[in-house]
Write a protein that binds this DNA or RNA. Structure first.
Lengths: 353, 353
DNA sequence: AAAATTTGTGCAATCGATTGTATTTTTATA
DNA sequence: TATAAAAATACAATCGATTGCACAAATTTT
């Protein structure tokens, strides 16, 4: 008796096996292939049959098994996405943009985070290849300096990079114009009569940081502004990184009066430390960040920064990806899209002269 | 000639078809089933054979086709996640926690956003069912008032809810103790000698908002604090919602001296409006929020709020899910886990008396 | 040395949908 | 009416991995 009750629980609780085209075919006394064709609107079938099949499918709430279809078609309609992490608003915005475009074209997203570790990046690629994604859209982790681990995935699926892209290889990519953004920030600071502009920079092997630095140096030299090697610090783009750099800069005989930070969190660190030291921002010290994190709008003073248009980057990446897969025959040249970011001038760098 | 060149491009550019167990079997002169067993460490095989197979698999960088395995096993090792959106830090933290635990157990995540729309929620469920996920972990959208659309998915896959959970049905769920959090915030405000505490509340059909309100009302009545229906506003949890409520509250003859907001963005709206009106926070007006969004730490004054421990919620949800699937036979009672949130007292509600 | 085990592999069916080819049915034409 | 053409549908193989069962080889037991 006991066991019967037990069995009853199993039956009720375990997920019911789903309806297949064979079930439908049996009930309609037709073959499974006809059912398949009916559901896919194959022109070889009569409308009458199509109607009958669709009606029954609707009645039973038939759900096609995508795995079976994918296996047969050799195409999963899923694309993998790897980002350093989804916490940062820039990346979650990119994902939003990707999803918007790709889901409209019938693709699913499988999202992985590298947490800035090469190991995780490799593992994520494995996972996505096993899941037989049709393509991988990714942004490199901080630790990724060489691209060997991408070689065999490149052979198996279509790849596309956004934001943190390989410097060397010929691949489809979407980035923003970090160079101009940094250049224009310097120009803005100069207009605000800041004379000694320092730079807290990120690691040079990451293209975005390299470009921001290049924009800074180019602007400084073209505008013939004061400069000094003492004003350049490579740091982590974190609050602590910003604080550390700030204290070192303020300890100099010849301290700067403005700091271009390659990231918002570093800018925030500078701001916190400045407030603690009683240095007036923006009057005595101008600060700019990068990324337009939500908090930059609400600090006191609010922080000038660069809106990287994540959603737009995501959309462009998705569109470029779709274009590349619909162009299988054609000679494919790597396409590199550059999105113009938008400078947002706020209190931290705006002073009345 | 032209066509040959064309073909050449096709071959080079199109993803190479991947190695299968049959390829390995052929090369080793054994059967595919033996290869499969070797790779799965089946005890019936000799170590010698296993070694040979594994070595060759490594050499060719063999990737098992998960779709084929899933199809055969009737189990995809993928779980679907539906959140209102991934931009909000609470949800991205939950996803982080889910991923941490589930990926360690060999599961992949497929993430969908409802953007607070019932339509999107339904579509996401369809998509996940088609992808044959093993389970769906979700948080309801704002628009979801009735649960009919969940009925058939409940029959097909295991479901689990977090944060925004169904009020009625018996299902596994993970929530935080919103009631106590709100209760304790009121108690904290009372300790700070605020006498007239208002409440900007969310929609009552969402459990989290209902619980926050209940905590507020219970505290007010148990502590015998002043109260008035004029001090209660249901609003959207946005900056604008907070601003609107603030102006209405300040227009009263008997204005409150503290506002318990059911969300951080509303609290931020209140803060912005108060600053604009020259009302001193926290001296003249106490403010508290909910969610510990990043910006709450960096506003001036910083905002007191509730840390909802998203990562922990995500981990618990994942663990509960794993427990539930490993317990197929057993009588399954719905389990409801409640995480204790952490109150974070900052400047916006802390005054020296 | 013959019989009984144990161990190692192969065969073939299976998961569910798709699709080239074959077959049947219907309609049009001679 | 017989025949050709067109339309509708069925058959069977396929995608790649898994697994129950059968069978063969090696080992142990009697």
């Amino acid at each position: 008796m006991q066991s019967i009750v037990f069995l009853y629980f199993c039956i009720v609780k375990s997920p019911k096996s789903q309806i297949t085209i064979h079930d439908l075919a049996r009930e309609l006394n037709i073959s499974a292939s006809t059912v398949s064709r009916a559901l896919n609107n194959n022109p070889r079938l009569s409308n009458k049959t199509k109607e009958r099949v669709k009606k029954l499918a609707a009645k039973y709430n038939y759900q096609p098994n995508k795995m079976a279809a994918s296996l047969r078609k050799g195409k999963s309609n899923t694309v993998g996405v790897i980002v350093p992490n989804i916490y940062r608003s820039y990346f979650s915005n990119i994902i939003g943009g990707l999803e918007e475009v790709l889901s409209a074209s019938g693709y699913n997203l499988m999202i992985c985070q590298s947490h800035e570790k090469l190991e995780n990046e490799k593992a994520a690629i494995q996972t996505l290849l096993n899941a037989r994604v049709d393509g991988i859209l990714m942004s490199l982790s901080m630790e990724t300096k060489n691209l060997e681990h991408l070689e065999h995935s490149r052979k198996q699926v279509r790849m596309l990079f956004f934001d943190r892209v390989p410097l060397s290889t010929q691949v489809n990519s979407v980035i923003i114009d970090d160079f101009s953004a940094a250049y224009n920030l310097v120009s803005h600071l100069a207009k605000m009569a800041y004379k000694k502009i320092a730079h807290i920079k990120g690691a040079d092997h990451i293209n975005v940081y390299a470009e921001r630095s290049r924009g800074y140096f180019t602007a400084i030299s073209e505008m013939k502004l004061d400069h000094s090697n003492d004003w350049i610090f490579e740091e982590e783009m974190t609050i602590e990184g910003g604080e550390r750099a700030f204290y070192k800069l303020m300890a100099l005989d010849n301290s700067p009066d403005a700091i271009l930070c390659a990231g918002d969190f570093a800018a925030l660190g500078v701001l916190k430390a400045a407030r603690k030291q009683g240095i007036a921002v923006p009057r005595e010290l101008g600060i700019t960040g990068f990324a337009n994190e939500t908090f930059t709008e609400f600090t006191t003073p609010s922080i000038s920064t660069v809106h990287q248009k994540g959603i737009e980057v995501g959309r462009s990446a998705a569109e470029l990806y779709l274009r590349s897969i619909n162009n299988v025959g054609g000679k494919q040249k790597a396409e590199n899209i550059v999105i113009k970011p938008e400078l947002i001038f706020r209190e931290s760098s705006t002073r009345n002269l």
